[in-house]
Design a binder for these strands. Structure first.
Lengths: 337, 337
DNA sequence: CTGTTAGCGCATTCAC
DNA sequence: GTGAATGCGCTAACAG
């Protein structure tokens, strides 16, 4: 099946390639009649423009990249859903890159993306990342970047986040009000702003309630060592002076906490109250004692994408530095306990 | 920042563009010394080849598309994880397209993909799709397609699936052996082979056990009408002669079943035993009565991607029609009941 | 071993 | 209104 391109259309219509090109782009300089003829033949022959030729010519790819630490995670899956919905609306294509929480991969992906392959990036940092030069460079090349959730504080870039401090405080408040006095905080990574801000909120809640805050109860977990994290949680719960509450900064750690309690025959919430960030919306009902802080992941994705497209289309090199803060929600199913 | 391209490198090195090009591609015809010089300058100037120029020239994009019904779903998220891991290994880029279970979107995406934007496709059909011309056409354009999970039976294309008949049978066996006599089957779509094969297994299990199979217990759900499905399940459970077991063909329906039981104050598993396909591995422990059939989603993704790359690289127009069948696993946590 | 030439398919000058 | 010519950045055929 011969590939049908502009030349082919032009020949069949006895027109110049440029005329056909303009007609297809609905240029005002082309007569209605000619446009008609061109459109018809194009549809008939099922003409689809070669995106690479056009990208090469226009230095625009109509493509964005989403760079995230992992995908088997409800938060990121929902965020992609939001991103894709806006992208589809705007006629953009979406490339997915996973860093697997590794700085090295994030670096290599960033370098690749200097090629002009994409018109913009949506980034959520890896847990290992604590140097942002690669993104700084990329941005200076002229590629707009919008961070979402796991943002880069030191880079003055557009971002979409949630009210992490407030929800961290609300989470700790909740546990304290239910009687917890020794609440462990499980941080996903000391590099990540989300983990730190949520912790700040947790500390603030202690102050508010006039409770001492014991730094020993903060567990710095590793973004990509589940087994290690699990063991650390087990150890924490085995101590004679074990916590009576756990606040997990991310879903993965909340689940590990549940598993650890299960293994140690600790009852939730009687022996230990567990509360965590999570987007397991659909599964939340599976266990009524699952109390969660849920982020509006879908909306975050949509807002971040919208912000990116706005920046891309503005076309000026002074990128937007807009910041958007959405609110998370505390979801308590078992309020009778 | 002036964009650094081959011309720029060539000029600075007093070489021809083609020489630089060949040096960078590590061609055997270039002297080691020249290569050295080229590599060095390229690294120094941070040269990154323009992928679109190269794609245009070579008619190869080093990009594949993944077309799936949804992403906020553990099965597909894990599959993408597998796909991306192989793609990254092979130096391919991954475009994501969501059909949202809608035929119209699948169609429009397929048409777009006739443009040569991708070297190959990984497809899992939408629940609405019952006409496969769009994929047939695409394939005839020369784009290899590998189906995974939700395959197209009538198209003779490569595919990676699980042993749906056997696992459907095993699921029903399990319920029957636990005493169920009226097992409802919740089909995700009568268009989808997975739903139909799983049902065939379920029927076969009834035959094996000498039990009658009541077609009234088969609920044909809709792939994209959660509310409708929920109501239908409620109705089913409200009947005087309600089922004592539910076999859900996909995770979403299993979860709705749980919710419906919750609303009707039916205890699981005492009043109704619920079993469903699901990849909520991490959450399974949340509720010990959650019995699932789990597909090796990550491996399916990996195998499908590997198969696609094999086909792409074979380069012949006689595409592979290889079929791969992986096994699902029945996971029972609460075996004491 | 290296340089010259000629496109890939399209969009944009500039002519007429 | 339309056509002819040019080049986006890269690779490949052909020289030498």
């Amino acid at each position: 099946m011969a590939t049908v391109d502009l030349k082919r259309l032009a020949k069949e219509l006895n027109l110049a390639v440029s005329t056909v090109s303009r007609a297809l782009r609905d240029s005002y300089e082309i007569s209605a009649e000619t446009k008609q003829r061109v459109f018809e033949l194009a549809r008939k022959l099922n003409y689809v423009p070669n995106p690479y030729a056009s990208s090469l010519r226009k230095h625009k790819s109509k493509t964005i990249a989403v760079v995230i630490p992992e995908i088997a995670n409800n938060f990121f899956a929902l965020a992609i859903n939001g991103i894709e919905s806006i992208a589809q609306e705007k006629g953009y294509h979406v490339l997915i890159y996973l860093t697997h929480e590794q700085y090295a991969r994030e670096l290599s992906i960033s370098r690749h993306l200097q090629s002009g392959r994409v018109d913009g990036l949506l980034v959520s940092l890896s847990g290992e990342t604590n140097n942002y030069d690669h993104l700084q460079e990329l941005k200076q090349t002229g590629v707009p970047i919008v961070f979402f959730d796991r943002i880069c504080e030191s880079l003055n870039s557009a971002r979409v986040i949630t009210n992490d401090f407030e929800s961290g405080m609300k989470a700790a408040d909740h546990l304290i009000e239910r009687g917890c006095r020794r609440i462990a905080y499980l941080s996903i990574s000391h590099n990540l702003s989300i983990a730190n801000k949520r912790m700040d909120g947790y500390i603030r809640a202690h102050e508010k309630h006039g409770l001492p805050f014991d730094p020993k109860l903060v567990l710095q977990c590793s973004a990509n060592d589940n087994d290690g994290n699990y063991k650390a949680i087990l150890n924490l719960l085995k101590k004679k002076n074990r916590p009576d509450g756990i606040f997990a900064s991310v879903e993965k750690l909340a689940i590990l906490s549940y598993q650890a309690c299960d293994e140690l025959k600790l009852r939730i919430p009687e022996d230990v109250k567990v509360l965590g960030f999570s987007n397991l919306e659909t599964a939340a009902w599976l266990n009524p004692s699952l109390t969660t802080i849920t982020q509006p992941a879908f909306e975050i994705g949509k807002e971040a994408a919208a912000l990116l497209f706005k920046t891309i289309e503005k076309k000026s090199m002074n990128f937007s530095e807009e910041k958007l803060v959405l609110n998370s929600t505390l979801i308590v199913r078992n309020s009778t306990k």
